[in-house]
């Protein structure tokens, strides 16, 4: 299949079942809300090395947040609900509570399960914390040197999709970056997804094996242009000089697929040489997202 000059490889992205939470961070200014969100989503690119994957979903105008202040929505993914809870306690405690003027709210109030976050962080208040219940939701007011940190007792967690991906191949770094950046911008227009790597892009894609016993993931040599003439298997065409990957985590398959579809279209408009996807032969992930199917489906707007 081709879109203009771009070849869309007949393959699939192999994605995994994860669990996700949505955190609404509000603050006195958009800048402080974003500062907390950026801190909270730092070092959260890959579940393999970071224990979770997290990213900024979008900015929220003041009139749409629980306390009428500017906000940022953050999505955090882990392999199970318990993992999401642990990471939330760590990251909300270290990155949001510490940030001036912030408050922190559950962004998935209708989720099937909850994990306790504010209910654990409250102990930082050393007995001076105050509980408030409004419309069945409990909040904790934790006294801090700047005033009070408000955090919701529990956060909803729901099954989600992790590890959706696109591989974008181009003749050189500038051209490939151009196509990838366009794809990232288009993919981020879908609510309910994050692209957890820096700028939404990862250059060091990995395979799930290594010649070293102590390492269970190593460079994806089949997609390294410098190894095209050397590695036992290569997927890099002779005219390609750069491969970049976009990893996507979504709250459900619909938003994940729609985001990938928009990414493919945007990269193709920038004349990416080839668009492919990473998989493990279909043996590991619960979900196979076929690129050709994405382009043939009529999807609703998100």
């Amino acid at each position: 299949m081709r879109i203009q000059t771009t070849e869309i490889v007949d393959t699939f992205a192999e994605a995994f079942k994860m669990w996700a939470a949505r955190v609404i961070i509000t603050a006195a200014t958009p800048q402080w809300a974003m500062a907390a969100a950026q801190s909270m989503t730092g070092f959260a690119t890959s579940i393999i090395g970071c224990k979770c994957e997290a990213g900024i979903e979008n900015e929220i105008p003041a009139d749409e947040t629980p306390d009428g202040r500017p906000g940022v929505s953050v999505l955090l993914f882990a392999m199970n609900a318990e993992g999401v809870g642990k990471r939330l306690v760590e990251r909300v405690g270290q990155c949001v509570m510490t940030c001036p003027t912030t408050s922190c709210f559950n962004g998935l109030p209708d989720a099937p399960e909850t994990v306790v976050v504010g209910g654990q962080l409250r102990y930082f208040g050393d007995g001076y914390q105050i509980s408030k219940v409004l419309n069945g939701r409990r909040f904790w007011r934790i006294p801090v040197m700047e005033g009070e940190f408000v955090v919701e007792e529990s956060f909803g967690v729901q099954p989600a999709i992790g590890g959706g991906n696109l591989l974008i191949l181009g003749p050189d770094v500038p051209a490939t970056l151009r196509a990838t950046e366009a794809a990232v911008e288009a993919m981020r227009t879908v609510n309910g997804i994050i692209l957890p790597f820096p700028g939404g892009v990862v250059r060091s894609g990995s395979k799930t094996s290594s010649r070293y016993k102590f390492l269970f993931a190593s460079t994806n040599d089949a997609y390294c242009p410098t190894l095209r003439a050397f590695a036992p298997e290569t997927h890099v065409p002779p005219e390609a000089g750069c491969v970049l990957e976009i990893v996507i985590d979504g709250l459900d398959m619909d938003v994940t697929a729609e985001s990938m579809r928009r990414g493919i279209q945007a990269a193709a408009e920038q004349e990416a040489m080839q668009i492919s996807a990473g998989n493990y032969g279909g043996t590991l992930g619960q979900y196979h997202i076929r690129l050709h199917d994405l382009l043939m489906e009529t999807t609703d707007e998100h």
């Binding site: 306390d67 009428g68 003027t101 408050s103 909040f139 007011r141 005033g147 009070e148 408000v150």
Partner: peptide, 8 residues
């Protein structure tokens, strides 16, 4: 001070 909880 500005009690943030009071806002909502």
């Amino acid at each position: 001070y500005q009690p943030n909880f009071l806002r909502f």
